[in-house]
Design a binder for these strands. Structure first.
Length: 830
RNA sequence: GCGGAAGUGGCGGAAUUGGCAGACGCGCCAGCCUUAGGAGCUGGUGGCCGAAAGGCCGUAGGGGUUCGAGUCCCUUCUUCCGCACCA
């Protein structure tokens, strides 16, 4: 009898899978349904730990299960290989970014192979290879043609430590996402942008078709990020000047309550407003300090309302009333029009501002029900919709009616219009960095900005670059690369020295897997048409906004180019929980990682997979426990010993002609338990992915089998083999190596990987007898074994005449008896 | 502040449709086996009362609906996540 030795059997079966090429996806196979399951591609840096492996283990279990269900499965893997850390390593260790990156890729590949994930390695991609980034450049040119890629001078977020521009999404509370203590500064630069805002509405509307397959909270996060807000723009003329101030409001119905117009300290018209005002120096100092005000969330929340009067007055175009113009520290220059109307009675911020500076509070909307508002008693603003008062011709309208009417009146009288604003900004993709995709344009003294021709792609990164981590793009320091000729006039030109944000790379990589070696196009349309949409995407919640929103945007652009025929790339998204140790996510910097290789060396990767799946449902965070791991190792040992003990005896036995129902009581029991387990494990795979309960059920089945020892007695070898086969097959998506070994021990010569998932038979799963709980007033007072399906009347009689129950109900007044067939009888006494 | 998720033994978690709360595993206790055990096997393990049979209490707190509530409704609290002076 052999011992379970994962160190021997894991490499053995990985070699078999490899040699037989069993995980290759077949392009365009119409004999089977396709299934595209994908885990988010890793950034190859540091070491792979069990936090990473959880993601891949979940995806692999699903991929293997789907293959057994007869699908043509595409399950690829690749590397998100461009990015800052490679450049930082280059600066620090003097090693070229490509060398550093490729060393990491080799290590990552080794670890993933060590875990035996069922990837189609022939489709591996790496985004830092010219064969890949060629197509980033190609997409960029197409977007340039369509006006989706454009260049403009813009205020950008500048991190001193990275010495580069950050996307809005990479600025967290005013700090760099990588350098949590580095304040992001504002700088003006010529930048390349992708016009994602052109798709704002479609990105919102497209979520409807994702409702069923994506987590609700991811959709909500994206919705908030897009931040659509419908409102009204209204022009307030400035008294005595040839100047208007436009405000944006979602509550134009409150406009008769305006006490002031507030503008941001950074408003472009502020300078003109302040012309000729006394004490300019003091005011300028004040403005400067407001502009430097912290943008950190916590500070904003506690910051006191602050402002000052500009000395100018604006005219409310609805009422003709004159109101002062103030600068307010809480008005954002970048949102809406940078100016707001101040309505203290109906906006909490305005209320606080008015309290501090003694501006009038005018109630113009009254609640529809309840006490009418009285200014003297108001402690806070009334911000709900209601019915208008003191609002000229609009008195008596509801807020909703007033918003419509006032907006159309403002439009027809030419002092305003309805408008929709978005929080979403266009995507700045320029990076002053080396290790990214070169942007394929040149600057010509005669022709200006000139895109390269397709036949000039890819623009390769030069190798000989001095990386200092300072200043502008390192590419500017390579003259032989920088200086080129203009594709238009043939005269001298300089290349663009910025590279693309790496989120461009990951916005379409999953299309490339369908056709990874294509050298004439990013992919063949027909291959994408066959494989897409992605049936199941698995990854962390951290990518809920950036990666997933950009990917959806790219898909829509590609659809408009006519190269894909779907609106959304990802049908279903699963966000797995983090793996934690000591209550915080595993990370190298915290020093709390459980390395994947150490895990595999100590226990075997099947144990690592089993524990990862067993310790928590996959969407929840998982606290790592060394002792828990040992429990999983013990279980696999137990299964191995059980099957290995009986396997040799069953080797030559054919289970084809087995009487599945069994004939002895023991056989019937084993078959029944197998079928019951199969049903629930199958349900878990098909619906909830609660592998933790699947494994618990398989453990129970094993416990039951052990409890029925000696299995040599009263069980026909064919029946036992049938039950063991089922056990091993159910285990195989989660612990594939031990499953292969046991399959072989049971005498099969074809691999588990090529087997069909066993078919569930309800007739064999059904219990002949069921236990009925007898309750009195909802409390359990007895139990009863009866035949399955016994009718209500008989159940009632059996319960009422049960010797344990009779004395308990003797002196109560019987109110009613609730009978639930196959479950319980509840006797209600008074 | 707004939006979302969650709160069950010493711990991870189960209870899928309103029907025996605590499956499965970890840990712990007792026993067996062993020269030995970080191996294996058997049994026990929510709290309180009890020798036992059994009883009472118990799913963050309070209230409700129901024959019956971890599950549904109202309410309070706590934790985590996202957004945040977004007009």
């Amino acid at each position: 009898m052999a011992e379970y030795d994962p160190q021997k059997i894991e490499p053995k079966w990985q070699k078999v899978w490899e040699e037989q090429g069993v995980f290759h996806a077949i392009d365009g196979d119409t004999s089977r349904q396709k299934y595209y399951v994908l885990e988010m591609l890793p950034y190859p840096s540091g070491t792979l730990h069990m936090g990473h492996m959880r993601n891949y283990t979940i995806g692999d279990a699903v991929a293997r299960y789907k293959r057994m269900r007869g699908y043509n499965v595409l399950h690829p893997m690749g590397w998100d290989a461009f990015g800052l850390p490679a450049e930082n390593a280059a600066i620090k260790a003097g090693i070229h970014p490509s060398e550093w990156t490729n060393a990491n890729i080799r290590e990552f590949r080794r670890v993933l192979r060590r875990f035996g994930f069922s990837y189609d390695w022939d489709r591996e991609i790496s985004t830092c290879e010219p064969e890949y980034y060629h197509w980033n450049q190609w997409f960029f040119l197409r977007m340039l043609e369509k006006g989706i890629a454009f260049r403009r001078k813009s205020k950008v977020n500048w991190c001193l430590d990275c010495a580069t521009v950050l996307a809005n999404e990479q600025v967290i509370d005013g700090f760099c996402w990588r350098h949590e203590t580095t304040r992001v500064e504002v700088k003006e630069l010529e930048q390349w942008f992708l016009r994602i805002t052109q798709y704002s509405d479609e990105l919102l509307a497209g979520m409807e078709q994702l409702r069923s397959g994506w987590p609700e909270r991811v959709l909500l996060m994206q919705q908030n990020w897009i931040g659509k807000s419908r409102g009204t723009r209204v022009k307030f003329p400035i008294e005595g000047m040839d100047l208007d101030l436009e405000v944006f409001t979602t509550r134009v119905d409150t406009i008769y309550g305006v006490s002031a117009v507030l503008i941001a300290a950074g408003h472009p018209k502020l300078g003109r407003l302040l012309e000729g005002v006394h004490g300019r120096a003091a005011i300028d100092a004040r403005i400067k300090s407001m502009l430097q005000q912290s943008t950190k969330a916590a500070d904003i929340a506690t910051a006191e309302k602050d402002g000052f009067f500009t000395g100018k007055f604006a005219v409310n175009p609805f009422s003709g009333e004159k109101v002062p113009v103030w600068v307010g520290n809480f008005v954002l220059a970048e949102y809406g029009t940078g100016a707001v109307m101040c309505v203290p009675a109906h906006d909490q911020r305005d209320f606080e501002f008015a309290e501090k500076y003694h501006l009038p509070v005018n109630v113009v909307v009254q609640p529809v029900t309840g006490e009418p508002l009285r200014v003297e008693r108001m402690r806070e603003a009334f911000t709900e919709y209601g019915r208008l008062v003191d609002s000229g011709p609009y008195v008596g309208l509801t807020s909703e009616q007033a918003i419509d009417k006032m907006t159309s009146d403002a439009t027809s009288k030419n002092f305003g219009n309805g408008e929709t604003t978005y929080r979403l900004k266009d995507w700045g993709i320029s990076r002053q960095r080396y290790w990214g995709t070169p942007i394929p344009v040149v600057y010509c003294d005669r022709d200006g900005i000139v895109p390269l021709r397709d036949d000039q792609l890819p623009v390769r990164l030069p190798d000989n670059v001095a990386l200092t981590g300072q200043g502008q793009s390192p590419l500017a320091g390579v003259p032989e690369w920088l200086n080129t000729t203009c594709p238009k006039c043939g005269g001298p030109a300089r290349r663009e020295t910025d590279t693309m944000d790496t989120f461009v790379d990951s916005s379409w990589y999953f299309y490339r897997y369908t056709d990874p070696h294509n050298s004439s196009a990013p992919f063949d349309k027909s291959k994408v048409a066959y494989w897409f949409q992605i049936d199941q995407y698995v990854g962390g919640i951290t990518h809920a906004i950036l990666h997933l929103l950009y990917s959806r945007f790219f898909c829509k652009v590609m659809r408009d180019m006519g190269i894909v025929n779907h609106d959304e790339p990802i049908a279903r998204l699963f966000t797995q929980g983090m793996v934690q140790k000591g209550g915080v996510a595993m990370s190298k910097s915290r020093g709390n990682v459980v390395g994947a290789i150490e895990m595999a060396d100590k226990y075997g990767c099947d144990t690592g997979r089993m524990y990862t799946l067993f310790a928590a449902p996959p969407e929840k965070d998982l606290e790592w426990s060394e002792q828990g791991t040992e429990g999983s190792a013990r279980f696999l040992n137990r299964v191995f010993r059980l099957v290995d003990k009986h396997g040799p005896r069953l080797k030559g036995v054919s289970s084809a002609a087995v009487d599945e129902a069994g004939s002895t009581a023991k056989e019937k029991l084993l078959v029944r338990r197998l079928q019951q387990t199969l049903k629930r494990v199958t349900d878990d795979f098909e619906t909830r992915w609660h592998f933790n309960t699947s494994i618990a059920l398989i453990m129970e089945l094993v416990n039951d089998l052990v409890a029925q020892e000696p299995l040599e007695q009263e069980v026909a070898p064919a029946t036992l083999k049938h039950v063991f086969d089922g056990l091993v097959l159910m285990l195989s998506p989660m612990a594939p190596h031990i499953a292969e070994e046991l399959w072989e021990i049971l005498g099969h010569s074809d691999g588990v990987y090529s087997q069909k998932w066993p078919a569930y038979r309800e007739d064999l799963a059904r219990e002949e007898q069921v236990e009925i709980v007898i309750q009195i007033n909802g409390r359990v007072r007895g139990k009863l074994m009866v035949d399955q399906g016994l009718d209500q009347e008989q159940l009632r009689e059996r319960a009422l005449s049960d010797p344990r129950i009779v004395p308990l109900i003797a002196d109560g007044h019987l109110v009613k008896v609730v009978v639930v067939p196959n479950k319980l009888v509840n006797i209600v006494l008074r």
